[in-house]
Computed example of a mutant assay.
Amino acid sequence: MTVTAAPRADEPPVRLGVAFVPTQPPETLRTLATTAEAAGLDELWVWEDCFKQSGVASASAALAWTERIRVGIGLLPAPLRSTAITAMELATLARLFPGRFVPAVGHGVQEWMAQAGVRADSPLTLLREHTEALHSLLAGEEVTTSGRYVRLDGVRLEWPAPDVPIVMGGVGPRSLALAGELGDALILANALTPDDVRAAAETAAAGAQRSGWPAPPVYATLIAATGPDAQARLDAELPQWGAAPGQGVGAAGDARAIADGVLRLAAAGATSVTIQPLADEPDLEGFVHMLGREVRPLLADG
Rank of each mutant, 00 (worst) to 15 (best):
G242R: 05
M290K: 07
L188K: 09
L93A: 08
T203M: 02
L41G: 01
H130E: 07
D283A: 12
G253R: 02
D301Q: 14
F20M: 10
W241G: 00
A270Y: 10
T86G: 03
G172I: 11
V46D: 03
T193A: 15
L298R: 06
P194E: 09
A268P: 00
F51V: 12
R100T: 08
I166E: 03
T221Q: 13
T23N: 15
G72A: 07
P162C: 13
G170V: 13
L278E: 04
T2P: 05
P216R: 01
T221P: 09
P277D: 10
D184Q: 06
E43I: 05
T31H: 14
V102I: 11
T221W: 07
L63Q: 04
G99V: 06
P165S: 12
A104P: 03
P25K: 13
R95D: 09
L137R: 04
A5C: 01
L182N: 03
L152W: 06
T92D: 05
P12Q: 05
Q110W: 11
A116T: 14
E111K: 10
L134I: 10
L234R: 02
L263Q: 03
A78S: 11
R156S: 07
G212R: 15
A225M: 07
I166V: 15
L299R: 01
G40T: 03
T31L: 14
